[in-house]
Nucleic acid binder design. Structure first.
Lengths: 270, 270
DNA sequence: CGATAGTTTGATATCCTTCAAAACCTGTGG
DNA sequence: CCACAGGTTTTGAAGGATATCAAACTATCG
């Protein structure tokens, strides 16, 4: 985190996913191989192939777009550090946020398979991006079974999250939508050790939440107040605190099994 | 279609996607390799590996579930013939349909990567299913670069469709949701040559459409009447006719580029 | 020709949006 | 340390889109 020049204003500096490293082999994990290693066994050679492939790093500022819808995809990107979100803009200017990319999430494996991007990716914080040429991507993916499996699985897990988002937006009311999304983000942030006691750094504002949930920001604000007045949580100053996880889960009818990253068949299937 | 004992009550028998075969090589395409061949070049050997892998066929009836949420995924399935839909059911009994699987679509590549299914798949028509053991799946996928690429790309295209569905349900009104979904299905059905002049066999009823779009069937019915009275289309007796494609597209603000299957980089990336 | 599933209609309730303004933060510069 | 600017959150009042409930109507199939 140091040699990359910091810049990310995380609330409690020094505590991040990189502290989760377990060093299954000799080569220490980066945030990228850490995440991929959870879905497929990666040996030293795999790790160095992956890290080497994305060795070029760029820094981008909060509020800018990493990927712009409609543009040709010439580069492969990976989010090394920072928060981001996928979105589309409609003709009338409305925005729909499709999913969030949290620190430690890899970013855009499937992006490069398409000739041009069908959605944009915006940054919620300053971020560090690993960048590589699309033309070599498939060769990298194919360099070992473990690597292919890791990226394939990772892509599929992303899709599970999007599917649940369809359900959330399609068949839940405002209160459930919001509480359900917060439950999901909470669990995902816990997975990468970003939750400290009952609080996390949370750079998603009410406008964004509304656009993710298919609501107006006015109504989102009022819905949030319901959760606050039920003593479930607080959200202000880019800090989310959850006081009553049980109650929140109950309101949301949240069942984390669709996120079952820990339940991966132990490197099976090969 | 014949040696498989028919059974599918398509409206105009004899015309199906199998007539689209272009026989790029010597081995004629099945509906499965036809579809996969659109996203990655498949030679004779690839085709026979794929077809052989899914050689075991079963028939299932309309209204039954091919895959049930929560169940362990022991088999890999492919939809050879018929219509299906992915869905989830909430605690309160509400259903959200996440996506449709049309004839010629492959079915569930990513399903097997997860230990247990996070959603169900129901059949809208009688169907023919190709079935195989999950444990051999990865070996099959890895038997050639083309095969791996074909399944990976196919998975990703499915995901593009789901992403657009999030936008549809999250940020469009009832009229746009319905017209947009119908536009998408129309284009996808055209791609597999199921549209004859201005009509298609269309086994999705109003209840299903409502559950896909996050609406009640009552409201869906009224919305459909708007499209009818605008002389855009007719929908009855499992036949959808589109009279005014231009107007429908306009109402929907539909832009098919997210379906860009024909725009695949010509077998690039490896 | 009767049973069953799917479609249509009407009346009423509610959730969410819209619009507009005020209040509140947060960082910046004098 | 205060003032100011810009973004974000909060509030109010009123309107509109969609839900709910219940019943009638219409296809379809054995």
């Amino acid at each position: 985190m140091k040699e990359e020049d910091g810049g990310l204003r995380v609330q409690s500096p020094g505590v991040g996913w990189s502290s989760v490293n377990k060093a299954l082999n000799n080569i220490p994990n980066t945030s990228l191989t850490e995440k991929l290693g959870k879905v497929s066994r990666l040996d030293d050679s795999d790790k160095s192939i992956i890290n080497d492939f994305f060795r070029n790093r760029i820094k981008m500022n909060s509020g800018t777009d990493l990927i712009i819808s409609g543009k040709k995809a010439e580069n492969a990107f990976v989010l090394i550090e920072g928060w981001a979100y996928r979105y589309k803009i409609l003709a009338n200017g409305r925005r729909q946020i499709i999913s969030y990319l949290l620190p430690g999430d890899i970013c855009d494996i499937y992006a490069f398979v398409l000739r041009k991007m069908d959605h944009s990716i915006g940054l919620l914080t300053d971020a560090t991006i690993g960048i590589a040429s699309v033309s070599d991507l498939w060769t990298m993916l194919w360099s070992s079974r473990n690597i292919g499996q890791a990226f394939f699985r990772s892509t599929i897990i992303d899709e599970c999250v999007i599917r649940e988002h369809v359900v959330r937006v399609g068949r839940r009311n405002a209160l459930q939508r919001l509480s359900h999304l917060l439950c999901e983000l909470w669990v995902r942030l816990k997975q990468v050790n970003l939750v400290k006691n009952d609080s996390v750094y949370f750079p998603i504002n009410q406008d964004h939440l509304a656009d993710a949930l298919g609501l107006t920001s006015v109504h989102l604000n009022r819905t949030l107040q319901v959760l606050r007045s039920n003593d479930c949580l607080s959200l202000s100053g880019k800090t989310l605190r959850i006081y009553d996880w049980e109650k929140l889960q109950e309101i949301a009818e949240f069942d984390a099994s669709y996120l079952s990253i820990d339940e991966m068949p132990q490197y099976a299937g090969g």
